[in-house]
């Protein structure tokens, strides 16, 4: 059998597109359907209620506070991960003994299951056998053990740290990719012109790395918005709702409050937010390679 040339590209991308349609789009359609009904527990049936769930959700303060938390979550993660990754990438872009080993093994934190990540940090931050409190006391930063998950703000910050700990090495490697692509002779020329290290960074590294950073920011945003397991397993959205981001709210509404339809409405709204962001952002990512 011979495919006409014009159809060939579709044969190549068809399987991937169909796969994603079946696994992502079709369930999403079902979620939309669910959000227009009044189903409570899984497995029961509901009747049509139109847009009632959306009305309910949009007038509920919890939804907006979760949306706000999600926004803060995404931004703080982006900032922390970018800073950590940039520092690490700049360091790993130097020549020193063992640089290849360091470049390979920095991703150690990313290749272990999230459940394990959560358990490790739960132990390390606890007051029973955890190392963090004694270390901070020794360093003179605190004078008595603190409960990292005891207050909404510290719990949130701690989760941002844990999530960034897991993801920053991955971002580091992507940045390293950007860095290695900056031609070395640019630096050489700058050095001859007498530019100091800071000037070389601000005039060469930063401008040339900025597009990479932009792309990574988009990816990072999408990745961290969807983080659910770390938060759920660590704090279940607490204390006092202080870490209840949108994915946590969706899960909680569906499986703790048994309001499937309401959860579906939140989910559809969250999808809209994210898609809106992605549509704008992918303008950047989706430029065809030739057009660059």
């Amino acid at each position: 059998m011979k495919l006409p040339r014009t159809l060939l590209p579709y044969a190549f991308i068809g399987p991937a597109i169909l796969f994603l349609a079946a696994l992502l789009v079709w369930p999403l359609v079902q979620a939309v359907v669910l959000s227009l009904q009044d189903v409570r527990s899984v497995g029961t049936t509901g009747k049509w209620v139109g847009l009632d769930n959306y009305r309910e959700v949009l007038t509920d303060g919890t939804f907006w506070s979760s949306t706000w938390l999600s926004l803060v979550w995404v931004v703080t993660n982006a900032v922390l991960q970018t800073v950590l990754a940039l520092l690490a990438a700049l360091a790993l872009n130097q020549n020193f003994p063992g640089v290849r080993i360091a470049r390979t093994w920095i991703v150690l934190t990313w290749i272990i299951p999230t459940v394990v990540v959560v358990m490790i940090w739960r132990w390390l931050f606890s007051t029973s056998g955890g190392i963090v409190n004694p270390l901070l006391i020794q360093a003179g930063i605190i004078d008595r053990p603190v409960g990292f998950f005891a207050r909404p703000n510290t719990a949130f910050a701690t989760l941002v740290f844990i999530n960034s700990w897991r993801w920053f090495p991955f971002i580091t490697l992507m940045m390293l990719a950007g860095l290695t692509r900056i031609p070395g002779d640019l630096y050489e020329a700058a050095r001859i012109d007498g530019a100091g290290p800071w000037k070389r960074f601000s005039r060469i590294t930063w401008p040339l790395l900025a597009p990479t950073l932009g792309v990574l920011l988009v990816i990072g945003t999408l990745l961290s918005f969807n983080v659910f397991d770390i938060i759920w397993l660590m704090t279940s959205g607490g204390p006092a709702g202080g870490t209840r981001t949108l994915p946590v709210l969706i899960y909680e509404t569906a499986f703790k409050s048994y309001r499937m339809s309401e959860a579906a409405a939140v989910a559809v709204l969250a999808t809209l937010f994210l898609m809106g962001f992605a549509v704008v952002a992918t303008r950047w990512l989706a430029r065809p390679p030739e057009a660059r």
Binding site: S126, S128, G129, R144, P145, F148, F149, A150
Partner: peptide
């Protein structure tokens, strides 16, 4: 203990055991 707001049964037991 200050981390009590994040406790489940296990942490309480560990606190007692230690």
């Amino acid at each position: 203990p200050p981390d009590a707001p994040s406790w489940t049964w296990g942490e309480a037991e560990a606190c007692f055991a230690s």
